[in-house]
Design a protein around this nucleic acid. Structure first.
Lengths: 226, 226
DNA sequence: GCCTCCACTGACCGTTCGGTCAGCCGTCGA
DNA sequence: TCGACGGCTGACCGAACGGTCAGTGGAGGC
């Protein structure tokens, strides 16, 4: 009902294209290979999509939905900001791994040069997510739970960079003996959250108590999940 | 003398290939376009390099040198670990921007699927740099300057993620109004360093004083550069 | 029974790809 | 003066690319 009746053919093409584009990138994938993986004729691909470009655009559009929903909803939920940060990191990492094809597509297109139209699209997704994360840090600051001197945008970059790097280098991480257990998503999320919340220094300057103490900053951030 | 006498031709090809591969990736660049940019005949490219693959490998190898030197040398230098972290972030960001072609090549190859041999190569560079950064955090922990409960590897991922994300999304960052001034390398480095050192929480639990207090943890990390 | 519609196909197009090859020509040692 | 060498070239190759097109065959309205 919600899907067009004759979507089976187009759908299988879209799925095959998503998988191949995510694995090998735009240029490396031929229309013939997409058709083969979808089990249809090459000409049929051009029957459903005007060109390879347009097919790629369709793949990107279908991959762009729903990404920042969680952060925005988290922003409005009750609970301490510290908990929100923990939950956000854990969710983002788990979400990236669960939808690794879509994630790889978006990350590739956000970073690269390449197609301008598509980069705009990926950037829209990135911007929505970025803004939502910034809002969470801003909220924590307004509540007095986070220090007034922090830059929420920089904190969001820190958070995003940590999750992206984990996604990109997870299998590389597995080979490093310096990182024992760090390749486990939950472990990584917990340790990174602890660092973002408390930093590395043993005793930061005691400052900006102005607004603090009010909202019960229970920094019990060791059970971020479940 | 240090360069082979007849290296001019091969050198210009290598330079042209580096620029083009960095901008558009392996698949999008044709040998003909490399030859055109180098001002030579296409066949001449194959005279100096056995294949497009081997040319790419040569480009990657020449881009792989020198990357982790700074971190390793910083590790052995005097000064507080907090200062080292600040300097490291500032250097990495400045270094990435100064050698943006090489950086883009390495990042692309570290992340992507693609050529296995080259990924190994890029990963070697990444691993050296990663280990060096981990050592700096480990050193800070042993000195009692950093909390004993932190994971040096996680901190290194945080640091690397922040610098990578900045490099990849700098022009996108320039369009976000949430980030005022954050697209300036020095500003970004300073704010990120402050976050990694002290975190976002207003008052982390007072813990692990055991080894601290000894090495003068002057957390005056607002002038990381110059 | 027939006509229309449309998802789908095989064969084909011009172009561009990575790569080859015979040969040109300036340099240098004998 | 000559021959060998090597950097360099234009012309060319088969393969694969994105894209086109005439046509097929089954489903549905009349």
């Amino acid at each position: 009902m919600s899907s067009t009746p004759a979507a089976t053919g187009a759908r299988s093409i879209l799925d095959a294209a998503t998988a191949l584009f995510a694995d090998e990138g735009y240029e490396s994938v031929s229309v013939a290979s997409i058709a083969a993986q979808a089990g249809v004729c090459k000409a049929n691909v051009f029957h459903h999509f005007a060109s390879k470009d347009e097919l790629y655009l369709a793949v990107m559009k279908s991959a762009s939905a729903e990404h920042a929903d969680y952060a925005e909803e988290l922003y409005q939920s009750p609970g301490s900001s510290a908990d929100k940060v923990c939950k956000l990191i854990a969710f983002e990492i788990r979400n990236m791994l669960a939808n690794h094809q879509r994630t790889r597509l978006l990350l590739r297109e956000t970073n690269d040069g390449g197609h301008v139209r598509v980069r705009k699209l990926a950037r829209t997704v990135f911007q929505r997510n970025f803004t939502a994360v910034v809002n969470i840090f801003e909220q924590g600051r307004e509540r007095g739970e986070f220090r007034a001197s922090i830059d929420p945008a920089a904190a969001a970059m820190l958070l995003g960079g940590a999750t992206h790097l984990f996604f990109n280098c997870r299998d590389a991480l597995r080979e490093f003996r310096e990182a024992n257990g760090l390749e486990t998503p939950d472990v990584y999320a917990r340790r990174v959250a602890a660092l973002i919340l408390s930093g590395v220094l043993v005793a930061p300057e005691p400052q900006t108590h102005e607004l603090a103490l009010a909202h019960g900053k229970r920094a019990r951030h060791t059970e971020a999940t479940k």
